[in-house]
Design a protein around this nucleic acid. Structure first.
Length: 410
RNA sequence: GCCGGGGUAGGGUAGCGGUUAUCCUUUAGCCCUGUGGAGGCUAAGAUCCGAGUUCGAUUCUCGGUCCCGGCCCCA
């Protein structure tokens, strides 16, 4: 075997795909019930789309290339930016709120490990156009609802970047960004050293550490003592109140920073058990990207679900597809083909393609897990009836073709 | 970019200086020309690549490569 699949990619076998499509269809059903409609964006985009907000350093993690027209391109590493680009290009005049969802593959040039691949699938939604708490809460509720539907237990952590940014507002953006990185990693020592280096004021340091350590039911009260009665805190509280109405449990965590710089308000992450180092299955929040792409000041909220990670922990079992095999002989082969054409209308039907003997055909039917076998032999042709055998029970009966259809559909 | 552990038929494995490279499974077929799952038989199919040591390397050494896990990173 000289040619193998590229590093970090996977082949999906028929059993894999049946399972993946099954889970996918459940997820699609949920978002459709909430009124979200599917979109698709290009697999590759102009490199600028991804570097605009994140800087040149992310090019290291992108699959990028120069096309034959000397344009810098990149395979999409995520879908929020492409969707916002699409919105800006062609959807600005639509009625709000705009509810979109996607299920697509993404590419990142990273070192593969458990739950991390170079080609991976993301399922996500973007809710565009509402600046109300209800929109943020709905997106979170929807994410939880999806995980619930596929029986994945997740722990929801919610935060609001506006609160922590309130403390940091006197610092320049680069310092803020670096601080957020330490906060996200929960690296208190590194954070302390960094604050020391940039000569942060004592009150800022005290407030910051107090805020990120806040936990528990009275978290909002405690936060109020640290930052005061600010607008962002009230907004956050309102979102949480709506989550209570949805009856969704959550942990408040002011330390959620998210990897992406574009989040501005509510942020949330959902962690699954039993997933090792890469246990975050969903992440999202609200952001202001559209302005950046030349559109108006349109608030949006969205999330992305790591589909592959879900597949590793979801134990929902895909129902086995029906499968009928027609057994024939050299003399009845044409009749078998004709009958197959009829049966295919109601059940997946296969005919012998290898001119096997009778026993070998039956054996093959068994190997591929056929539910039923229909014997189209010379005896049956004379009779005008065929033998239908249930492969699970072994029961068989000789019946007319029209009755077979009734039998299989009942 | 860094650190570990690994690469022997399609899948799973044994051998650890000289073998016809082991066994299981798989696939195709036969025993058995109209009744599957069992059994027996036949066939197909492998030492990741390169260099070195050696009379001789699947085995030892080095390099590469790929896979698996962890770090960094995760827009």
């Amino acid at each position: 075997m000289s040619i193998t699949k590229p590093r970090g990619t996977r082949d999906f076998l028929p059993e894999d795909m049946e399972q993946r499509r099954y889970i996918e269809s459940i997820m699609r059903d949920i978002v459709k019930k909430w009124g979200y409609r599917e979109i698709m964006t290009p697999t590759f985009e102009h490199l600028d789309l991804f570097t605009l907000k994140s800087g040149e350093t992310i090019v290291d993690e992108l699959y990028n290339f120069t096309d034959k027209g000397n344009r810098e391109m990149a395979l999409r590493p995520e879908l929020t930016a492409p969707v916002m680009r699409m919105y800006t290009n062609e959807l600005q005049a639509t009625s709000k709120p705009l509810k979109l969802y996607y299920f697509e593959n993404c590419f990142r040039y990273e070192r593969p490990q458990k739950g991390r691949y170079r080609e991976f699938w993301q399922f996500g939604v973007e809710l565009i156009g509402s600046k109300k708490e209800d929109a943020d809460a709905e997106v979170i509720a929807l994410a939880m609802s999806i995980l619930d539907a596929i029986k994945v237990n997740g722990t929801l952590n919610v935060g609001h970047l506006g609160v922590i940014r309130h403390i940091l507002k006197e610092l320049d953006t680069e310092h803020q960004s670096n601080i957020m990185r330490y906060v996200d990693k929960k690296d208190d020592t590194g954070l302390d050293d960094y604050l020391e280096n940039i000569n942060a004021t004592a009150s800022l340091r005290r407030n910051l550490f107090e805020l990120i350590s806040i936990q528990g039911d009275d978290a909002l009260e405690k936060a109020k003592e640290v930052v005061g009665d600010i607008e962002e805190l009230q907004y956050f509280k309102n979102v949480l109140n709506i989550l209570d109405i949805y009856e969704i449990p959550y942990n408040i965590d002011f330390g959620i920073a998210r990897g992406l710089d574009y989040y501005t308000g509510i942020v949330f992450e959902i962690y699954a058990d039993n997933l090792g180092a890469q246990n975050q299955v969903c992440g999202g929040g609200s952001y202001q990207l559209i302005k950046l792409f030349g559109g108006g000041d349109v608030p949006s909220t969205g999330f992305g679900i790591g589909f592959d990670r879900l597949m590793q922990i979801c134990d929902l079992v895909c129902p086995k597809p029906k499968n009928l095999m027609i057994i024939s002989t050299d003399n009845t082969r044409s009749e078998a083909i004709k009958i197959g054409q009829r049966l295919r209308e109601i059940v997946p039907t296969q005919v012998d393609l290898m001119h096997r003997n009778f026993k070998a055909q039956l054996s093959h039917a068994n190997n591929i897990g056929a539910d039923h076998v229909l014997i189209v032999g010379e005896k049956e042709l004379e009779l005008g009836k065929f033998t239908l055998k249930d492969m699970n029970t072994g029961y068989q009966e000789t019946i007319h073709i029209d009755d077979i259809i009734d039998r299989l559909t009942s």
